[in-house]
């Protein structure tokens, strides 16, 4: 990795200023989250009294108790994990295949596909969501893990293709040319050469899309109405009504829903950052 920075920059003297500002900004970013976490451990009466203070004797896990029971959290966790896993696997496979074909094969068809898929990143979800129910129902996959996974995969593919194509274009041509000389077919080039190289960018795609799918509200709300298969965020939505007064339940459920993604992020953070740096900057 190219470390392009050395001490000869003219504005290295602003180290302290930058550090202070960055620290302040980090505090600004983390503060609401901290507030939410602390308040999730207070009973509703304490929250009503004062939102900003935290008395150790107010500490209680009652909100978590309630949330887990009422939302049937374990079931929701399982559903969300299954759907997310399915979607991510499909996205990685299909996305990298598409990007590989696009970047290696010179075909007008594939060029159009690439341009369309970039354009599709721009379509807001609202223009699609209202027709998903009749469509899925007519295909018979409404209310199934696979149906929702297909939708999420389709929504994630444009971004995945974009990232993968950007990455593959940075790989030298000689790789594929050497393989062709040896008589490899296109598929062999993919599996033998490109796949092992894609680890970092795959992590980037995983974290980006897993976060989106895990936290998504609309698609999961609309495509799954079977009570045993609903995902976590739609379950949580029952508390988040505009007239909700149960802040303790809202905050506790928010914390619980965010924990798995946070853990995944911290685990893979190094690779993720590397992938962002290498892949996302290119056109």
């Amino acid at each position: 990795m190219k470390r392009a920075r050395t001490k000869s920059l003219s504005w290295q003297n602003k180290h302290i200023g930058s550090r202070i500002l960055l620290l302040l900004f980090t505090i600004f970013v983390l503060f609401p989250i901290l507030l939410a976490v602390l308040n999730s451990f207070k009973p509703i009466a304490a929250i009503q009294r004062n939102f900003l203070t935290f008395d150790l004797k107010d500490f209680s896990l009652s909100a978590y108790d309630k949330v887990i029971t009422i939302l049937r959290f374990g079931e929701g966790l399982w559903n969300t994990t299954v759907v997310t896993l399915l979607s991510i696997v499909m996205t990685v496979l299909l996305g990298s295949l598409m990007a590989f074909a696009i970047s290696l094969v010179n075909s007008k068809f594939l060029r159009t596909v690439y341009m369309t898929s970039i354009l599709l990143i721009c379509i807001p979800i609202h223009a699609i969501i209202l027709q998903l129910v009749p469509l899925l129902k007519s295909m018979g996959i409404l209310n199934t893990y696979f149906g929702t996974a297909f939708v999420f995969t389709a929504l994630s593919l444009p971004v995945a293709v974009f990232l993968y194509t950007g990455f593959m274009r940075t790989l030298p041509r000689e790789l594929s040319e050497a393989a062709v000389v040896d008589g490899c077919s296109l598929w062999r080039i993919y599996t033998a050469i490109y796949m092992p190289l894609m680890k970092t960018i795959t992590v980037t795609v995983i974290i980006l899309r897993a976060t989106y799918i895990w936290n998504d509200l609309l698609v999961s709300l609309v495509t799954i109405s079977d009570a045993t298969k609903t995902m976590l965020v739609p379950r949580m939505y029952a508390f988040n009504s505009s007239t909700s007064t149960r802040w303790d339940l809202v905050l506790a459920s928010s914390v619980l829903v965010s924990l798995p993604v946070a853990a995944l992020y911290l685990f893979l953070q190094k690779f993720y950052m590397r992938g962002l740096v290498s892949g996302a900057v290119k056109e």
Partner: peptide, 9 residues
């Protein structure tokens, strides 16, 4: 199988 609703919505 119980689905939760939001009474205001």
């Amino acid at each position: 199988n119980v689905m939760l609703e939001d009474a205001s919505n």
